[in-house]
């Protein structure tokens, strides 16, 4: 950024402020209350909406809500069935949970960036990060859960021997290269949850950051020369940029939720394939 002097420190303070979680505890025992609060609220919203639809589900002509929920279900079911050879009654519900929950958490990114933190500050809460998926803890929680399930299903479908063979005799089918094979396997396996979590986090974090920068523009402190255009020009440019980025971001948040779901399905399905 071209920000310098007073304006620059203000801007970085603003961004810094927005990137700080509302938390209690120290070190490892820190709990990000805002991440937890929003993800739980959104999760409860998801399950209560879908549960409500499920309770009122009829085989006859579906209502609007049921229609929407059924479309989601069939979409997920289709994806799962497409890449899943075996039968597992956890897979499709898990995929649905991932998709809808991640989507809702991402959706918080479209809430005006300063609105909720400002409301919270009126209530005496100084820090609030409203998008749970911009917290690595949230994305890793999901990707590591999927990773744990991958390990579990690997052992269940291939057995201890099968997993050992895959670890030590693949890709080089010789016992002399077993340590190297193991190293490759570990890297390969670890790359999955890492990339899964970091991809989602990175996309949303960057998106959030850009919303902040757009917001900063109207504060007139980032681009010094630009600020001299006057408040109306700043307001209009803020509005336009905000709209454009929001529209683009609708794609991003949906796509990221979809990617997270589809990769989880793929990882879990390969884990359950017995050779």
């Amino acid at each position: 950024m071209a920000a310098e002097g007073q304006g620059g420190s203000d801007a970085s303070a603003y961004i810094q402020h927005h990137l700080t979680n509302l938390s209690i505890g120290d070190g490892f025992w820190t709990l990000h209350l805002d991440t937890l609060l929003f993800s739980i609220v959104l999760g409860v919203l998801f399950i209560s909406l879908f549960r409500y639809a499920a309770l009122r589900a009829v085989a006859g002509v579906p209502g609007r809500l049921q229609n929407f929920v059924e479309v989601m279900l069939e979409f997920v079911e289709h994806q799962v069935r497409g890449s899943f050879s075996g039968r597992n009654r956890l897979m499709a519900p898990l995929a649905l949970t991932i998709f809808v929950w991640v989507f809702l958490m991402n959706l918080m990114d479209l809430v005006p960036v300063d609105l909720l933190p400002w409301l919270a500050s009126q209530g005496g809460v100084n820090y609030l990060k409203v998008v749970p998926t911009t917290d690595l803890n949230a994305t890793f929680a999901m990707s590591l859960s999927v990773f744990a399930m991958v390990i579990y299903y690997n052992f269940r479908s291939k057995g201890l021997l099968g997993v050992a063979r895959e670890c030590f005799l693949h890709p080089f089918n010789t016992i002399f290269l077993a340590p190297f094979n193991l190293l490759l396997k570990v890297v390969e396996e670890l790359a999955r949850p890492l990339s899964l979590a970091l991809r989602l986090f990175g996309n949303l974090y960057a998106g959030e950051l850009i919303f902040m920068l757009i917001a900063l523009l109207s504060l007139g402190r980032v681009l010094g020369d630009f600020a001299q255009l006057g408040p109306i020009a700043l307001f209009v440019s803020q509005l336009l940029l905000g709209i454009v980025w929001s529209l683009f971001h609708i794609l991003v948040i949906t796509l990221q939720a979809f990617i997270f779901m589809i990769l989880s399905i793929i990882y879990l399905s390969t884990a359950q394939e017995s050779h």
Binding site: W29, L36, S39, I47, R51, A92, F140, S145
Partner: peptide
């Protein structure tokens, strides 16, 4: 990363379980 991760994982597990049990 901190203990939030585990809390989130618990929430995630609950949501998935609830979906599998009562929604799907």
């Amino acid at each position: 990363l901190n203990v939030t991760l585990f809390a989130q994982a618990v929430v995630f597990a609950f949501l998935a379980w609830f979906t599998m049990r009562y929604i799907w």
